[in-house]
Nucleic acid binder design. Sequence first.
DNA 1: TCACGTTTGTTAGTAGACCTTCCTTACAAA
DNA 2: TTTGTAAGGAAGGTCTACTAACAAACGTGA
Lengths: 391, 391
Amino acid sequence: MTATTQPLAAAHGVGRALRPTGKVLPEHARAHNRSLVLAHLFHTGHASRADIARSTGLTRVTVSGLVAELIAEGLVEELGVRVEGKVGKPATLVGMRTEAFQIVAVDLTDDAHLRGAVMTLVGAVVARRSVALEGRTGQAATDLLESLCRDLLAVATRPVIGVGIASPGVIDVDGTVVQAPNRGWYDLPLAADLTESLGVPVHVANDANTRALGEFTYGSAAGSGCMVLTIGEGVGAGIVVDGALVLGRHHAAGEIGHVTVVDGDARDEPPLDCACGRSGCLETVLSVPALRRRTAGLSTEDSDAALASVGRLLGIALAPVVSALDLAEVLLSGPPELLDGALRESALATVRARTMPVIGHGLALRMGSLDEDGALAGAAVLVLSGQLGVS
Amino acid sequence: MTATTQPLAAAHGVGRALRPTGKVLPEHARAHNRSLVLAHLFHTGHASRADIARSTGLTRVTVSGLVAELIAEGLVEELGVRVEGKVGKPATLVGMRTEAFQIVAVDLTDDAHLRGAVMTLVGAVVARRSVALEGRTGQAATDLLESLCRDLLAVATRPVIGVGIASPGVIDVDGTVVQAPNRGWYDLPLAADLTESLGVPVHVANDANTRALGEFTYGSAAGSGCMVLTIGEGVGAGIVVDGALVLGRHHAAGEIGHVTVVDGDARDEPPLDCACGRSGCLETVLSVPALRRRTAGLSTEDSDAALASVGRLLGIALAPVVSALDLAEVLLSGPPELLDGALRESALATVRARTMPVIGHGLALRMGSLDEDGALAGAAVLVLSGQLGVS
DNA sequence: TCACGTTTGTTAGTAGACCTTCCTTACAAA
DNA sequence: TTTGTAAGGAAGGTCTACTAACAAACGTGA
């Protein structure tokens, strides 16, 4: 038993805030509760004011007030009386007017084309437009993107509540593109610039993160912890942990494509050079071009063996991440003929073999439930979340 | 250019909430702002009401009200007039009464002893107590813990605002021990039970997570993303991402000790059997006993080589995690004579070699700045955070 | 058939929280 | 002594959500 009086830090001025916090005003509380009501209607489809009151914990009076405000803005409408015969006064249902507004979403994942769509608030595609990039970068690429957005805004048949853009590269929370080498964008405040020029709120986020958002909101991703691995020209990931997207120190979280997975001293295969200047990166074996090269001309059996060996490498890289974050799911997004077979099974078996049973046993590793529109859907979620607080 | 009308989900009832949200009342806003004021005083040491108003964004009137409330509760006191001569009425400084209250912290990391301390609000140890566990588990261990807490509460010279406990095992957000095999605890509502029997608020969290909190608040950990790797009998980790502790699906995040790092086909060393029933786990090479066995009787040179080879294995396991989360720092907590040398340098070099330059280059991998009291300090932070909203 | 209980949604009044505006106090500089 | 600046507090207003009470609408059971 000893007693010391040495403090762990000076008597004053210790530490720093765990989470950047700001003041909260009553009006912020109201905005939060308003989003709560709207989100409930978004997720359940329709409900009575009393239903909403019960599930949010607010009183019927407060909910009535919020619903009235939402109806006045045109976001919500009364749907008539509930038909189910129960005792008491029948409820008048209200629902979100998901067809009354539209969202413009753009996916910049592809190096050759800008793909965009007009969507309803529930993610249904109303119209599509795409333009060839034809090698444009920098300002020329920005101009082309802006004109695509204008086209889409013109095609929309309802008021557009915002534009969502999924872009490759490192993008901060304000929608500034810190760097996107393939587009020649560096420190470009894309969201702010387009919001200014288009006159509509614009939200921009990384394409892998966006895809994770899309899977999460419209797909089947688990909220308690999941990772969406996007496999295309490159390999990227978006990670949702404890219900929130992981951003990282440089907003570069999920950049898992350039982790070394093939060592120089490996017996079975030599490391391949990577575009990043190093060699043996995950991208050199798992990207779609790499997988196609690897399986080209092989018999089904040999092809499966090749895919399984890539799956094993993926599993080795995933195991520490899955363990450290206690993830519930890993979703793969990309060509199913390459991914959804020997590769996926081998990766899952590898992760299970290399992690604690409690972690690996319940883990799901499967294909994402959205197709190539995943990034578009996620871009729409950016707008829903940013403009309406719904997600 | 095509147009489809197929929705990504049914017109109603899509998705689920991104983050579990609840209603926010004006009184919650006040509690938040109160914590904001207190946290400012905790971090800066002392300030005038006007200073606080400027840095929080609240008005002087509101801050005065909150400060008056805090003074009435005895948490804050006036410190006299600021001496620096500037124009205008001199400011009366206020500060948190960090010596007026105490915290009881207990560290259950050790398998043989329960270690506890009475601490001030800034983490200075006022008194220590420890008791030998002597093999007790289950209810006997709980009883011993409770009596240690009572001893510490009796030793405290000031009112105790709460008890913080750092325990090994899987622990949920309510302080229920889901499982802690070494203590024989399963589904034990430890925080609730002790709060009831001691009559003081009790907070319980995993010891690795707690240590991360301690490093974060009193130490030098980076808030934007860091991982504190605790190396003792076993290997565990606490991870702070985007300013919040990662919990994971089963509240088992950070359980990185049982990731396989030694393969069966490795040329240089065979995988060792692990207590978890598998083999080749990180813990079989990185735990303190394993490191001591490995370096016992070796010359300095050979010992460094052995430690470097373990560091390389650690680096291989860390690289995917660092990349996926874009971590700024990895801190090691454990015996410096084993960790802070060839092992650390080799691990850092390995991580840098196996990740993108933008990720690995700025990464710091160093020893935690707190010693063996790290878990105690973190337990104190649990109380500060839970009772006062300060962290 | 009809009183009764149940449920819904609204109106009225209350309490809390913050803001803006204005005032007093206190000091330094001219 | 005058002037300008800054701190702190008091008064009044706005916003938010709550409780209490009530009317409307419906099923149920005597």
